[in-house]
Simulated assay, not measured.
Amino acid sequence: MSEEKSLVGQVIDQSSGVLEKAYDDLAHPSAKSLGNTLSLVPRTIGVWLGKWEKWVINGEESICLTAQAVQEKAKNIPEEKLTEPEPYVAIPAVQQLSYCYDSEELRELYANLLVSSMNVDTKHYVYPSFVDIIKQLSPMDAKVLEAMKQEQSPIPVVTVRLNFKESKSYHELLIDYSIDLFQLFGDTSILSASLQNLDRLGIIKIRYDQVVKPDERYDVFYEDAEYKGLVASFQGKENTDITLSKGLIELTEFGKAFCKSCCED
């Protein structure tokens, strides 16, 4: 255990720890190599490739910021609970950090994941696939997930349909519409896409075979301005009506483990 504490101490107490070493190995050779390359190519091509130099520099900054966040968060872990992070989690996480230098939300997820993998009480919640999942999230996805974690689960969701009576077909006007989350983000199409991405990744489940109890929780949809506007737009048109399909959004067990590992401060 003394060996483990020594390794973890390098991460927490010194800027030359495990994360910083990975940062040096990953970022600095790239910057040096790129600098040499730019000196050998024609000026126009050098300008084009120069954009990648900015990416390398920003990537270094992203790794440094995350290392600082890990250091700060790890201070809350009792010393006897500290353990060396598994390399199959830590190394790919550090590698991916250079791609999210402009997103504090995504950096926070990586930092939380790394800290969870360093705590004996939480590391069993950490799956190697969490690194790849964060890679597929947008900053909006991270905000939606944080909001879902704060809200009472499950969350009511509806899909609003325009039904064509003669053809017995329908057109979906609002898909996976959640007032609880819409009030926070204010764009139905972007929010719907974000929810569907989280569902695709197995973090949440959007389902219409169950509803939230009590049923009165859906009453707010009938009074919602977005819904009323759609009803008014098609009112009086023959052979059509608007219906509201009720469903719910809930975190999966896998999603709960993800939130425990990546969304807990």
Rank of each mutant, 00 (worst) to 15 (best):
S103T: 10
A69P: 12
I175E: 15
K123F: 09
E166Y: 13
S138G: 08
K237R: 15
I206N: 00
T44N: 09
I155P: 00
K149Y: 07
M140G: 10
T66R: 04
R217D: 07
I249D: 13
T44C: 02
L251R: 02
K246S: 01
G9C: 03
Y177Q: 06
S153L: 06
S30D: 09
E20T: 06
I91H: 05
D265E: 12
A193E: 15
W55T: 01
I57W: 04
S16Y: 08
I91L: 15
Q68Y: 14
V115L: 07
D219F: 07
A147P: 04
F258W: 02
S261H: 00
I175P: 06
S153W: 04
L38G: 08
G59T: 04
E86V: 08
A225I: 11
G46N: 07
L198D: 04
L137D: 11
C259I: 02
K213L: 02
L174G: 05
P156L: 10
E226N: 13
V131T: 01
V211F: 03
L173D: 10
N112P: 12
V120K: 14
I134C: 11
L201F: 14
A142W: 09
A74I: 08
L251D: 02
S129D: 10
V131D: 01
S189G: 08
D141C: 15
V231D: 07
L201Q: 15
E172V: 15
Y208T: 03
D102F: 05
V131Q: 00
D102E: 07
V94E: 00
Y88H: 11
F234S: 01
K205F: 14
A111D: 05
I203P: 00
V131K: 05
L7M: 06
S15F: 05
Q14R: 10
F130V: 09
L49N: 01
S98P: 00
I190L: 13
V158N: 04
K168I: 04
K256L: 07
Q96E: 06
Q95C: 02
K246E: 06
D121A: 11
T37R: 03
S30L: 13
S117D: 00
D13T: 01
L65I: 07
A193T: 09
G59I: 10
W48V: 09
Y222M: 11
L173E: 15
I155Y: 01
A232F: 09
E172M: 08
A93S: 12
D215W: 05
R161C: 11
R217A: 07
V89R: 08
L244E: 15
A67H: 13
V115A: 05
K75I: 03
L106R: 12
K143A: 13
L251N: 08
P128Q: 04
Y125E: 12
A93W: 01
E253F: 01
I206K: 14
S30Q: 12
L34K: 01
G186H: 12
A74E: 12
A147T: 04
N76M: 09
Q235M: 12
Q14K: 10
S169V: 04
D102H: 06
V47S: 10
L145S: 09
L248P: 06
L195F: 02
D25F: 14
F254M: 00
E80A: 07
S233I: 06
V131W: 02
E253D: 11
F164H: 15
L82H: 06
